[in-house]
Design a protein around this nucleic acid. Sequence first.
DNA 1: ACACGTGTATAACAGTGTTATGACGCCGTT
DNA 2: AACGGCGTCATAACACTGTTATACACGTGT
Lengths: 201, 201
Amino acid sequence: MTDDTDDADTRRRQVVEAAARVLAEDGPHGLSLRRIAAEAGGSTQIVYTLFGGKPGLADALYGEGFRRLSQAMVAALAVAPPPGDPERLMALGRAYLAFAETEPAFFAVMFGRAIAGFTPTRDTRAYGRECTFGLVVREAQACLDAGTLVGPDAEDLARICWATGHGVASLDAAGMLHAEHRDAFVDLALRTPLVAHRPLG
Amino acid sequence: MTDDTDDADTRRRQVVEAAARVLAEDGPHGLSLRRIAAEAGGSTQIVYTLFGGKPGLADALYGEGFRRLSQAMVAALAVAPPPGDPERLMALGRAYLAFAETEPAFFAVMFGRAIAGFTPTRDTRAYGRECTFGLVVREAQACLDAGTLVGPDAEDLARICWATGHGVASLDAAGMLHAEHRDAFVDLALRTPLVAHRPLG
DNA sequence: ACACGTGTATAACAGTGTTATGACGCCGTT
DNA sequence: AACGGCGTCATAACACTGTTATACACGTGT
């Protein structure tokens, strides 16, 4: 049998998952190469051979975060009303906020410069935008096509929805929100762009 | 004459300003105690005697960031239409975005976990929320009183406006926005909560 | 069988935050 | 005026970080 568990890509994935575990346990501050190496069962050198250094691993971790976020958003769409219903945009927003709350360390790495001296690669950023923001654009376009929303083009509408959800998530992660009825406020906030662009009558 | 330049508070301010210079020059990653000490003309020990360690200095820097942001927002209000005009909320949002763009390092410290292992104090967070979010609440209340906006209470309305502006600023800082006409989109986004809560007719 | 190349582990390096140590000055007391 | 005590400062050391150089083991092609 072709046992490809020694493949370079496979080992990369293993190290990324080990790093993700460390990240979830100890936060971005505890994400040291020695800790990761211990978790992955090797030496710190492995990070250099597989990723070229810590920034390379951070970039992979950054991409992994977007992969998981995208996965959560797709899962939310699977149990949402059919395309064209603005409730699908609400579902995406709620999934986004849930991810930010359950994976604060990933969220900080992706949007908060949590790993010292790391800036994501242009390509990885483009990938992250594609696999998350792309979902929002698609749903916004469907709503515009169905006439359930009116206004600017799908890209701008999606950007507004994204910014609204991201703003709530980011402020919440920063401990700045303090709304008495959090869930009710989240609904109110996420619905704001939809209210602003609802069809007349 | 009473030369109080040797006051502890004065020295604290000097060190904070030195740290702010280092932060602006080298970013959060370059913010080391030895670098700060050199900039302030002393030893690393000064940070421990004045702030109890790096987290203490980071907390002071965090507060300083909100002080500067609040100052920029107040300055924007000074040249805005009189209270009750929703354009004042637009002015606050634009000042917020301008701050995020001109002081990305401060913005990252305030909202992005950019200093490793630092979490702001409860009190400092409350201060930051007060001197920035408080301004938004006041203007939102004025608009509700004047009838130029209708909808939820001032706090929720202000939270929505804040989240929208912060979301745009944060996504932009993360290199995620990529709107072709940035200024036009910023206007469109900031206006969304106002459109959603405009009076009928 | 032998050279080569690749990946790994070890150890060393510069840098970080932190802490202990010792020296200095300043203030109040006697 | 001299003393003791307190606080502040600079220096040096500690454990830790990312990174790099070195040496070793393994697999492969000839």
